[in-house]
Design a protein around this nucleic acid. Structure first.
Lengths: 194, 194
DNA sequence: ATGCTTTCTTATCCTAGGATAAGGCGCGGA
DNA sequence: TCCGCGCCTTATCCTAGGATAAGAAAGCAT
């Protein structure tokens, strides 16, 4: 996908959610920096400060953390139409605790946190857009917390399949296990029993 | 606390986060409905549609879900300065999946979802305030997901004590256990070992 | 084609924490 | 003052899922 197509993709995404004149988008898009990431390349490494939001127009990223024992825990899959970033680091300028890498060759549009305040002032509709985005993310995360409190490994997996059909076909199972909070061996066991 | 004091409390909360002229707050406050909840009374029962946001000015609420086996899972403690609600139900008008009850006699200010759109239009600063609120809630929830993926019961408990000092002194331990996703017996065991 | 690497599976053994049961203690109400 | 109940603890026994180890299959790179 060339950069132009990527911009169109983001414009469609935004206009499906908030009213945004093409003329305004035309100005907004100057803040975007296209980037391509090859499979397994990192967008962000834990410890670096996170300075950008990334919008995926093609491919798939994942954000994850590493615990003391060297175990990876996947926090988010970000296929087309998703934003990723370490929001905590982005907001506080603290070193990031998350890493972000590419599960496939991936096309991104980067938006600098430093430009966001300007954008909010210039186009207040973005304030609304990000409020709506954060709201729906919050609801999704709350559902995930709820699932982690109340469901068995098998239930969590089935819930994941229902909620994110497509992802399971696309990403290796051990990443899904690390998203669900179980080992790849357990996931394999669970799948055998279904 | 009389209603006037409650209003002042919310005004201070808002003005600490966004610029909000007293004159604007004076208009905004007409949308607020004070309410008092006695210990163990419910603000919301799962199945009802959730129509309001509640801001706690005194006391403490909790939101929780009930799974198939009748087990309660605490999703949020809401002491003074916190908003609570079932945001999913609030946004979609679907029946709520959460219940909310009072852990102590609690004073609230209620804000109808139906009025929020008006408020956003009238005072765009509220759009920003709720964006900031949602952002920080999202970060906190993500940290919680991360903890649930990577920590033992004991670590989760210690993390909770650090993150919410005050709550542990205030609410019965079995609620904390249900927040951490462990049984009260396990929490007791964990505490003995510390 | 032939190794490497990545992914997934299966088997065995082990442990953190759940289930169940019982008892203690403090407090509010009659 | 005594009852009842809400809350916490302890003990025992049990199970879901982790740890470890070993292959097998599939894809890629040379």
């Amino acid at each position: 996908m060339e950069f132009l197509a990527a911009h169109h993709f983001l414009r469609a995404h935004l206009q499906a959610r908030v009213p945004l004149p093409n003329a305004d988008f035309a100005i907004f898009q100057r803040y975007l920096r296209p980037q391509i990431l090859r499979k397994r390349q990192h967008l962000l490494l834990a410890g670096e400060p996170c300075t950008h939001l990334a919008f995926v127009t093609q491919g798939c990223l994942r954000s994850y953390s590493l615990n003391g024992q060297g175990h990876e825990h996947t926090l988010q899959f970000a296929p087309e139409d998703w934003w990723v970033s370490d929001i905590y680091s982005l907001l506080t300028q603290q070193p990031s605790t998350l890493s972000i890498d590419a599960l496939e060759d991936t096309h991104l549009l980067l938006l600098a946190q430093a430009d966001l305040e300007t954008i909010y002032a210039q186009f207040p509709i973005f304030e609304r857009y990000f409020r709506l985005l954060m709201q729906s993310r919050y609801v999704a995360l709350q559902e995930r917390v709820n699932a982690s409190l109340s469901q068995t490994a098998s239930e969590k997996y089935q819930h994941f399949l229902r909620k994110y059909p497509g992802i399971a076909q696309r990403v290796p199972q051990h990443f899904i296990a690390s998203y669900l909070g179980i080992t790849p061996e357990s996931l394999s066991r669970v799948r055998r029993q279904l």
